[in-house]
Design a protein around this nucleic acid. Structure first.
Lengths: 201, 201
DNA sequence: TCATTCACATACGCCGCGTATGTGAATGGC
DNA sequence: GCCATTCACATACGCGGCGTATGTGAATGA
C-alpha cells in the first residue's frame, strides 16, 4: 500500500483542521474554542495549525471562506431555477435569510467573523455574496426594472437588512411566525424598488 | 473636609470603571482589553470590577447600556425638531447611519457587542432604539402614510440596513462619497414605503 | 545516496482571567 | 460613643490558552 503523495497529505491535513475548527467555532464560538482541543480532535497539534494558517485568526478566515463559498453556490442554484430574473432575485434574497438562520453560519460568519476580522465588506471573500447581489441590481437598474440608485449601496442595505432579519428570527421565541413577518416585510421593501409600483416622482 | 457619603463613592467607582472600560473597548476592542490595565488606569483593581459587574461581560453590558442611552437621546432630539413626522423619521434614520460611523459605537455596539452578548434584539437595552423605530412605523402604517406591513419587522430590516451601511461606509477608502451613496439609497428604500409613491397593488 | 526541505510535534514562558481570601472603613443598634 | 456587622474594594493564587522557539522524521531531488 503505497502512501499518498505529499501534496495530498497536506491538503488532507488542511481540510481536517478547517473541519474541526468549523465545528468548534460553530458550537462554542471562536473565543471559547481551544486550539489544543480541536486540533487534538483532528488528530493533530497546534503545530500544524500555526504552520498552515499562521494563527487562530487565519484559521477563522479559512473557515469563513469555505462557508461563504458554499453559501454562494447554494444561492446561485436557487436564482438559476426561477422563471424570470426578478423572481430569481427575490428568491435568492429569501433564501439568504433562511440560510442565515443556520446556527453555524450565524455564529461564525455573522457574529464572530465581524468581531475578529472586522467589517465583512473588507473581506476578500464576502465579495462573492455582495458581488452577485450588486450585479443583479445593476442590471435591473439599467433595464429600468427598479428605480435608479447606486447598485452597490442598495446591495449593502439589502444585505444588512436580510442579515439582521435572520439574527432577529433566530433569537425570538417563535421563529416560524417571525420568519413569515420578516419575509413579508422584505417583500415590501423589494416591491418598493420596482418602477412599476412607483407612481409619481 | 468631610468625606462624601458612601453611596456617592460607589457611584463614582462605577462610573470610573465604565469610563475606563469604554475607552479601552473602543480603542483596542473587547478581546484585547486587559482588565488589569484599564482598571489600573482608573486607579482601581480587578477586585472592584468583579464586585460591581460580576465579570468582563457584565462590564461590557454596562458600557453598551450607557452608549445606547446616549444614542437614543440624540436621536429623539433630532426627530423632535423636524417639521412633520415623516421628515423627522427620515432625519432620524440618516442620523443613525452617521452615528454608527463613530468608531466607538461601531466597535463596541456593532461588532464586539453581538459577538460577546449575542444578537442585539435580545438585549434589554436595544429596545430603546428599535422600540422607537417600531413605534414610528406603526403610526405611519395606521394612518396610511406607508404601506401596510408588520411594523416591527420593517423596523428590524431598516435597522439592519442602516447599521450595515455604517459599517460599509466606515471601512471604505472614501467615506464621504460612500456616505452620499448610502444616504441616497436609504432614501430610495424609505420612499418605496410611502403609499403616495405606490401605484398599483 | 546524501543533503536539503518541509510538515508537523514538542517544550517553554507569558499573560489574562476567575476565585478565594484578606482588610479597613462606613453603617446601625444600644 | 462603643462595638458588631456589613461591604467595598485589594491581594494572592492557580489554571488554561496562546505564541514561539526548537526538534524530528519523512519526502524530495540531484
Amino acid at each position: 500500500m503505497a502512501h499518498k503523495p505529499r501534496s495530498e497529505m497536506i491538503a488532507e491535513t488542511r481540510r481536517k483542521l478547517v473541519t474541526a475548527a468549523r465545528r468548534a467555532f460553530g458550537t462554542v464560538g471562536y473565543a471559547d474554542a481551544s486550539m489544543d482541543d480541536f486540533t487534538a480532535e483532528a488528530g493533530l497539534t497546534r503545530g500544524a495549525l500555526y504552520h498552515h494558517f499562521g494563527d487562530k485568526r487565519g484559521l477563522l478566515e479559512a473557515v469563513i471562506a469555505e462557508i461563504d463559498a458554499e453559501m454562494n453556490t447554494r444561492l446561485c442554484a436557487i436564482s438559476a431555477k426561477a422563471g424570470n430574473r426578478w423572481q430569481g432575485f427575490v428568491d435568492e434574497c429569501l433564501a439568504y435569510v433562511e440560510m442565515a438562520l443556520e446556527p453555524e453560519i450565524q455564529r461564525i460568519v455573522l457574529r464572530d467573523g465581524p468581531a475578529v476580522l472586522g467589517d465583512p465588506s473588507t473581506w476578500p471573500t464576502q465579495n462573492a455574496c455582495i458581488g452577485s447581489l450588486t450585479e443583479s441590481l445593476r442590471r435591473f437598474a439599467d433595464e429600468g426594472t427598479i428605480v435608479a440608485a447606486d447598485p452597490e449601496a442598495l446591495a449593502r442595505l439589502l444585505n444588512g437588512a436580510m442579515l439582521h432579519a435572520s439574527l432577529w428570527i433566530a433569537n425570538v421565541p417563535d421563529p416560524e411566525a417571525t420568519s413569515k413577518k420578516a419575509v413579508q416585510a422584505l417583500r415590501t421593501f423589494l416591491d418598493g424598488l420596482l418602477t412599476e409600483n412607483r407612481g409619481s416622482r
